[in-house]
């Protein structure tokens, strides 16, 4: 149970980073932390005590194994967050090119 709570704390740290930080790169890091905390939580949910990976082997019988579905989901979610991070980092680089700063309080041409 305490591990689950730690995951939620990690999630909250991610949200804190997104909401409170003023540097674009730090916001992106916050986003990444949010994603990782959910992946960690997902894999922990699928864990069974003394379980092994759900991969069949020729020589040994498997008595207890962890739930493989969360691992597949976590992998998919990692791929998605990879795509988003690549996109958002390239946008951040372009923003730096145009505005000359990473400070979000100075990036405010759109308003109203």
């Amino acid at each position: 149970m305490s591990l689950y709570i730690l995951c939620m704390i990690l999630f909250c740290i991610g949200i804190y980073g997104v909401l409170r930080k003023r540097n674009l790169v730090k916001i992106i890091i916050g986003l990444a932390i949010m994603g990782y905390s959910i992946n960690l939580f997902l894999v922990l949910l699928g864990y069974r005590f003394h379980g092994r990976a759900a991969i069949e082997a020729e020589t040994q019988d498997i008595l207890s194994m962890v739930d493989p579905l969360p691992q597949a989901m976590a992998l998919t979610s990692i791929v998605i967050s990879l795509g988003i991070l690549a996109l958002v980092i390239s946008i951040a680089i372009r923003i730096y090119e145009k505005y000359g700063t990473f400070d979000i309080t100075k990036i405010k041409r759109l308003k109203g």
Partner: peptide
């Protein structure tokens, strides 16, 4: 795809 992403970021940096 990953190589292309990395390449794009590097080229962006280089042109800058």
């Amino acid at each position: 795809g990953l190589f292309a992403i990395f390449l794009a970021l590097v080229i962006l940096e280089k042109t800058k």
